[in-house]
Amino acid sequence: EEKRQVKQVAKEKLLEQSPNSKVQVRRVQKQGNTIRVELELRTNGKKENYTVEVERQGNTWTVKRITRT
């Protein structure tokens, strides 16, 4: 359940930055209360990979860091 929520948060964050792209989740890793989500962003056939680190704060998820990989 929490992985599902985190995927959603990570996707939304990337789509905010580039709204007309397609996002696909590649991998989800958990480390303590930080969850790392690896995503693939496609814009006009151009692929970019991103890693989004999401942290739990109380009962909400906040995006800590977005890295292009």
Results as ranks from 00 to 15, higher is better:
Glu40Arg: 07
Gly32Cys: 04
Leu15Arg: 05
Gly32Val: 03
Gly58Asn: 09
Leu14Lys: 02
Val54Phe: 13
Val52Phe: 02
Thr43Tyr: 11
Glu2Gln: 11
Pro19Tyr: 02
Gln29Ser: 14
Gly32Asp: 05
Thr69Cys: 07
Val54Ser: 01
Glu55Met: 11
Leu39His: 00
Lys3Trp: 15
Arg27Thr: 06
Glu53Asn: 03
Glu53Arg: 03
Asn59Tyr: 11
Asn44Phe: 10
Lys11Cys: 09
Gln24Ser: 14
Glu12Arg: 11
Arg36Tyr: 15
Lys64Gln: 08
Lys22Trp: 13
Thr60Gly: 13
Leu14Tyr: 01
Asn49Tyr: 15
Val54Tyr: 04
Arg56Gln: 07
Arg36Leu: 15
Lys11Ile: 15
Glu16Phe: 03
Trp61Gly: 01
Val6Asn: 01
Thr60Lys: 13
Thr34Pro: 02
Val23Arg: 01
Lys13Met: 09
Ala10Arg: 01
Arg4Val: 06
Lys7Gly: 15
Ser18Trp: 15
Lys13Tyr: 13
Gly45Cys: 05
Val63Thr: 02
Arg42Met: 11
Ile35Pro: 00
Arg68Asp: 03
Val9Cys: 05
Val9Tyr: 06
Gln24Asp: 07
Glu16Ala: 10
Lys46Gly: 07
Glu38Tyr: 15
Asn59Ser: 08
Leu15Ile: 04
Gln31Val: 14
Val54Ala: 02
Thr60Cys: 05
Arg56Ser: 05
Asn49Met: 14
Arg68Gly: 03
Asn33Cys: 05
Arg27Leu: 07
Gln17Trp: 08
Gln57Met: 12
Glu16Thr: 06
Lys64Val: 15
Glu12Ser: 10
Ala10Phe: 02
Glu40Leu: 12
Thr51Lys: 04
Glu48Arg: 06
Thr62Arg: 12
Lys11Ala: 10
Asn59Pro: 11
Ile35Trp: 15
Lys13Ser: 08
Lys30Cys: 08
Thr69Gly: 09
Asn49Ala: 09
Thr69Asn: 12
Asn49Trp: 14
Arg65Ala: 14
Thr62Ser: 10
Thr60Phe: 12
Glu38Gly: 05
Lys22Ile: 13
Ala10Glu: 01
Arg56Asn: 04
Glu53Leu: 13
Glu12Ala: 14
Arg56His: 06
Lys13Gln: 05
Thr43Gln: 12
Gln31Arg: 13
Gln57Trp: 11
Asn33Met: 10
Gln8Asn: 08
Gly45Glu: 07
Arg65Ile: 06
Glu55Ser: 08
Thr51Cys: 07
Thr69Phe: 07
Gln57Asn: 12
Thr69Tyr: 12
Lys11Met: 15
Glu38Thr: 13
Lys47Glu: 05
Thr43Gly: 08
Arg27Asp: 05
Lys7Asp: 05
Tyr50Trp: 14
Tyr50Gln: 00
Trp61Val: 04
Val63Tyr: 01
Glu53Val: 12
Val6Ile: 14
Glu40Gly: 03
Val25Met: 03
Val63Ser: 01
Gln17Pro: 01
Lys7Cys: 13
Glu48Phe: 07
Asn49Arg: 14
Arg36Ala: 08
Glu1Met: 06
Gln24Met: 15
Val54Cys: 06
Gln57Ser: 12
Lys30Val: 15
Thr43Glu: 10
Glu53Cys: 05
Thr67Ala: 07
Thr34Gly: 07
Gln31Trp: 15
Gln57His: 11
Arg27Ile: 05
Glu40Trp: 12
Leu39Phe: 07
Gly58His: 06
Asn44Gln: 09
Val28Lys: 01
Ser18Ile: 12
Thr51His: 05
Val52Met: 05
Val25Cys: 04
Gln31Tyr: 15
Tyr50Ala: 04
Val9Arg: 04
Gln5Lys: 11
Thr34Cys: 06
Gln5Trp: 08
Glu38Trp: 14
Ile66Pro: 01
Arg68Met: 12
Glu2Arg: 05
Val23Ala: 09
Val63Leu: 04
Arg36Cys: 07
Val23Asn: 00
Gln31Ser: 13
Pro19Gln: 03
Gln31Lys: 11
Thr51Ala: 07
Glu12Phe: 03
Lys7Ala: 15
Glu55Asn: 04
Val63Asp: 00
Val23Cys: 05
Arg68Leu: 14
Arg42Thr: 15
Lys47Met: 10
Glu53Gln: 06
Arg42Gln: 10
Glu2Ser: 07
Glu53Ala: 04
Gln57Leu: 12
Gly58Trp: 04
Val63Cys: 04
Lys47Asn: 08
Leu14Glu: 01
Asn20Ala: 09
Asn44Met: 10
Gln29Val: 13
Pro19Leu: 03
Ile35Lys: 01
Gly58Val: 04
Val25Gln: 01
Arg4Pro: 02
Arg42Ala: 07
Arg36Val: 13
Glu40Ser: 10
Glu2Tyr: 04
Arg36Asn: 09
Ile66Ala: 02
Val28Pro: 00
Ala10Leu: 08
Tyr50Arg: 00
Asn33Tyr: 07
Arg65Trp: 09
Val37Phe: 02
Glu1Cys: 09
Thr62Ala: 13
Asn33Thr: 11
Gln24Tyr: 15
Arg36Gly: 02
Glu16Leu: 08
Val37Met: 03
Gly45Met: 07
Trp61Leu: 08
Gln17Leu: 15
Ser18Ala: 10
Asn20Pro: 02
Val37Pro: 00
Leu15Phe: 04
Glu16Gly: 05
Glu2Asn: 06
Lys22Pro: 02
Pro19Arg: 03
Pro19Val: 03
Gln29His: 14
Gln5Ala: 12
Arg26Pro: 00
Glu2Asp: 12
Thr69Trp: 13
Leu14Gly: 02
Trp61Arg: 00
Lys7Glu: 15
Ser21Arg: 02
Asn49Cys: 09
Lys30Thr: 14
Glu2Leu: 09
Gln24Pro: 00
Glu55Trp: 12
Glu55His: 08
Arg65Asp: 07
Thr51Phe: 09
Asn49Ile: 14
Val9Lys: 06
Val9Ala: 06
Glu53Asp: 10
Gly58Tyr: 05
Gly58Leu: 06
Gln29Cys: 11
Thr34Ile: 12
Asn33Lys: 10
Gly32Trp: 05
Gln29Thr: 15
Asn59Val: 06
Glu12Lys: 12
Asn49Leu: 15
Glu38Gln: 11
Lys22Arg: 11
Val52Pro: 00
Arg26Val: 14
Lys11Trp: 05
